[in-house]
């Protein structure tokens, strides 16, 4: 049983296993499920993620609030033009994150990861990496195990709810979870996964939750797109051997404190930030 990154790393070293295997062993022990049952639940989640990250490319949807839609398709069209400033994998990852957000906002079936509002980041990171490096299902599921272990640590010691901690707690946690997963999938050590998670969370520390009209649409979908890129670059930074000077557990504690100190107007109430710009208010008035 681990409650923080220090304990999880300790167990990994003691048993000489990867984070994904340690998370699996702990889940078997704490919840009485067999390895096969856990793998089958994760496979089901992966299927949901595959569908949710591609659905709106072929079936355009109307979102409930009507604020977003079509962003994923635009990214894929842009990809065809082959004039990206970044590269095709970053653009593809962003497309997947946008698609998940659109699908979620149109009442599609998604897997909260860790929340519905941030449900695009982990699928976009894992599926795009798997496509680029031709991973098999087992390796993708190992990524989900790493991500969920990191998410569990954040949930125990801080929060993953935007209403409690702002967007840093939702999209920040999702990016940290994805960064650790990518690092292990790419052959990084357990320590490097924790550095990647810490770097991702630090990169957007303080980000508020300010959805237009209180709806899970804008700026949420773009923060899913930037969130997956945050995960990718944080994993690359860690894999290059750069370390987070502050250990992950302390970063989580800092994120919690920032969330606690954050004014209520910036925690999903739509009373601050982007949500109260003139254009946002006019949009909401028009949609009434």
């Amino acid at each position: 049983m681990y409650r923080n990154a220090r304990e999880l790393l300790g167990l990994c070293n003691e048993k000489n296993v990867k984070i994904s295997e340690m998370v699996m062993l702990d889940e078997i022990e704490s919840n009485g499920l067999s390895r096969e049952e856990i793998l089958s639940k994760l496979d089901e989640i992966l299927v949901i993620m595959e569908n949710a990250s591609s659905a709106t490319l072929y079936n355009p949807v109307k979102t409930l609030g009507g604020l977003i839609g079509g962003e994923g398709k635009k990214m894929m069209n842009y990809l065809q033009q082959n004039r990206m400033i970044t590269d095709q994998w970053i653009v593809k990852a962003m497309a997947r994150a946008f698609v998940c957000s659109e699908y979620n906002a149109s009442m599609g079936r998604i897997c909260a990861a860790p929340t519905a509002g941030s449900c695009g980041i982990i699928p976009a990171a894992i599926l795009t990496y798997a496509e680029k490096f031709k991973l098999n299902r087992e390796e993708m599921i190992a990524g989900l195990l790493v991500a969920s272990g990191i998410g569990k640590i954040i949930s125990i010691n801080a929060t993953v709810s935007g209403a409690e901690g702002g967007c840093q707690a939702e999209c920040g946690s999702a990016a940290a979870m994805a960064a650790a997963a990518l690092t292990e999938m790419s052959g990084g050590t357990a320590e490097q996964s924790m550095h990647a998670a810490a770097i991702a969370l630090k990169n957007i520390m303080g980000l508020i939750c300010d959805p237009i009209g209180g709806l899970v649409e804008s700026p949420c979908s773009k923060r899913n797109a930037s969130g997956v890129v945050n995960a990718m670059i944080s994993a690359d930074i860690a894999l290059a051997g750069v370390v987070s000077i502050i250990p992950f557990d302390e970063v989580v504690e800092a994120m919690k404190n920032v969330g606690t100190g954050m004014h209520q107007d910036f925690k999903e109430t739509a009373r601050g930030g982007i949500a109260i710009t003139r254009t946002a208010l006019a949009l909401i008035e028009k949609n009434k």
Binding site: E44, G108, R109, C111, A116, G117, S148, G151
Partner: peptide, 16 residues
Amino acid sequence: INSIFDVLGPIMIGPS
């Protein structure tokens, strides 16, 4: 929070 499926989940109809 006890299970990883409290973090990766629920599987649900969106958006919130």
